[in-house]
């Protein structure tokens, strides 16, 4: 059974049909790429899955359970974590604090019991430290997140998402603005995450990264799915090439 399934998902904004009857499956522990020219609807699909938007029609099922109508924080609690296209961090708080917040479960008790959360907080803090070490960022753990260089900020976003112990991790253009070495480092880290049991859905414009690290790729154009295949097949797919011909710069390798 697929970990996540989209059935006929449609999203309309007023008169604009952003996403048109998408069917899609994501299987456990795979890295699935979601690509398409600008305006194809990738981020919209993304946002529908995480609950930022409610889809106009269709269903989204997580391990068979309907999540289409849930709010974003409820979906996060079900085990879907995400990063953002623009870098959203708690800028004035330390990197360590940012990751600790990711482990939301430690703060969930009512106010009256918040003092008993000390154990949970310390555990979260320890775990945050582990994650930072694994991402190679433990030296910057006390820096304000807003002062990190761009690449490390993007990594921090992923670390925060990882801290919430997700089953499915949605990455929205994680390597945007990074240089080649940073991209490789990040994508290798993503691969390691998969080996830890996390399923990855990757939206990216960087074709080299997508082709190299994704096992399967779904291609969207104008809100519709036009291909769903292995990277080699997608690369030579005529519809895909035609869709991108209007934006050739996206199809070159960085």
């Amino acid at each position: 059974m697929a970990l996540l399934e989209l059935k006929g998902v449609t999203k309309q904004f007023g008169g604009i049909l952003a996403v048109d009857r998408i069917d899609m499956q994501i299987f456990e522990q795979e890295i699935l790429g979601l690509i398409g020219p600008n305006g194809a609807g990738k981020t919209t699909v993304f946002n529908c899955i995480c609950g930022r938007y409610h889809c106009t029609n269709g269903e989204i099922l997580l391990q068979g359970e309907q999540i289409s109508k849930l709010k974003s924080h409820e979906i996060a609690k079900k085990g879907i974590a995400r990063t953002f296209q623009t870098t959203i961090l708690l800028n004035n708080m330390s990197v360590l604090d940012n990751i600790i917040i990711g482990s939301h479960t430690w703060g969930e008790k009512s106010l009256a019991l918040s003092f008993t959360n000390r154990r949970k907080y310390l555990r979260a803090k320890e775990r945050a430290g582990d994650i930072l070490r694994a991402f190679g960022m433990d030296k910057v753990s006390h820096m304000a997140a807003g002062e990190l260089p761009h690449g490390q900020q993007r990594l921090t976003q992923i670390a925060i998402a990882v801290a919430s112990e997700p089953k499915l991790l949605l990455l929205d253009e994680p390597v945007v603005g990074m240089n080649a070495e940073e991209i490789r480092y990040t994508m290798e880290a993503v691969k390691k995450l998969r080996e830890q049991g996390i399923t990855i859905l990757l939206v990216e414009h960087n074709m080299r990264a997508v082709m190299e690290y994704c096992e399967r790729i779904v291609v969207l154009d104008h809100g519709r799915k036009i291909a769903e295949d292995s990277p080699d097949k997608v690369r030579s797919n005529e519809d895909v090439i035609r869709a991108y011909l209007g934006a050739p710069e996206h199809f070159t390798e960085d």
């Binding site: 709010k71 953002f84 918040s114 801290a163």
Partner: peptide, 28 residues
């Protein structure tokens, strides 16, 4: 005491970025 405890850390985070907090499961 509330503000400077663990509860306060969450409040601070919510005021910094409600969206980020929601994405990690905090019912803001």
């Amino acid at each position: 005491v509330i503000e400077n405890g663990y509860y306060g850390k969450i409040l601070k985070s919510i005021s910094e970025s409600e969206e980020l907090c929601q994405s990690v499961g905090i019912n803001t």
